[in-house]
Computed example of a mutant assay.
Amino acid sequence: MKNIGLYFGTFNPIHIGHLIIANHMVENSDLDEIWMVVTPHNPFKKKSSLLDNHHRLEMVYRATESYDKIIPSDIEFKLPQPNYTVYTLAYLSEKYPSYKFNLIMGEDNLKSFHKWKNYETILELHDIYVYPRVSDGKIETQFHNHPKIHHVQAPIVEISSTMIRKGIKEEKNMRPLLSNAVWQYIDEMNFYKK
């Protein structure tokens, strides 16, 4: 049975921090692959600076093309909106019965995991792989030493897509924080400049 880690994000844009985490998780755990699941634009929310789904997916393709174990996924584009992780997991488990699906999340998300829709069902059926983040707040006691929650000692990466978008808008050189292919795409398309 193939063991898949699902790394959800808007990836607006995908940056080297995302790649460092994904690569570290797949190389230092029992996960066989990481699927980078691009979260679609929620039609009920104000668009702000979120690029269209196909542009963000294209950047994920470009960023991951040289990584054999990191796979772009548009699976949530095909599901009803707004979407919840529990439904995506159910859909994937039904579509790929020979795969085991797990969640990848930062410690900051684990702190609010008890607020997720049907989080008990997620924990009952799936494992969670957690990477460290610099953040305040406490993790719920019920998640301490939980047999389905695995802490992976990945590097702490404090790069954000928000910071990159802001820097591009201010005409700063944000190139070192992006893979060359992603930087070229952003530059060609004039993204985030306004």
Rank of each mutant, 00 (worst) to 15 (best):
P82M: 08
R56H: 04
I20S: 06
H126G: 07
E171W: 05
E94P: 02
H126F: 07
N118E: 15
A181P: 00
A63K: 03
D187K: 14
N28F: 07
A63S: 14
F143R: 05
I139V: 15
S161I: 03
I156W: 05
P97H: 06
N28V: 06
V130T: 08
Y129D: 01
A154P: 01
G5N: 02
Y99Q: 03
L89A: 11
R62Q: 11
N28H: 15
K172E: 15
K45F: 11
E33T: 09
W183D: 04
K47M: 09
S49D: 14
Y119N: 06
H15G: 04
I71G: 00
V134T: 14
I128K: 00
M59I: 10
K45R: 12
I4M: 02
Y87I: 10
S112G: 15
F11K: 00
M189L: 13
L19F: 02
E65C: 12
T64P: 01
T121A: 14
H55N: 06
R175Y: 08
V86N: 07
R133F: 08
S93P: 05
N28W: 06
L57V: 06
G137R: 08
T10G: 05
I70H: 02
L50H: 05
I21S: 01
L79C: 07
R56A: 08
L123D: 04
I21G: 00
Y67F: 15
E107Q: 14
D32L: 00
E107F: 06
N190R: 08
S179E: 08
K117R: 14
I16T: 09
A181L: 07
P147L: 09
Q142E: 14
L178N: 03
H55M: 07
S66M: 11
S98D: 15
Y96G: 10
Y96H: 15
M25N: 01
I104S: 00
E170A: 15
H55I: 13
T162I: 06
N102T: 06
L50N: 05
I70S: 00
I104W: 03
L31K: 00
P43L: 11
K78Q: 11
M174A: 09
V130L: 06
Y131E: 01
Y87E: 11
I21E: 02
R165D: 04
T39D: 04
E94S: 13
P13N: 06
Y99N: 13
A181Q: 09
E107K: 09
I70C: 05
H151V: 08
F11N: 02
I159P: 03
S66D: 13
Y192M: 07
F77Y: 14
N12P: 03
I75N: 02
T39S: 15
L103R: 04
N118W: 02
D30Y: 02
Y7G: 02
S98W: 05
P132H: 05
L178G: 03
M25V: 10
V134L: 12
S66L: 12
K95Y: 10
V134G: 06
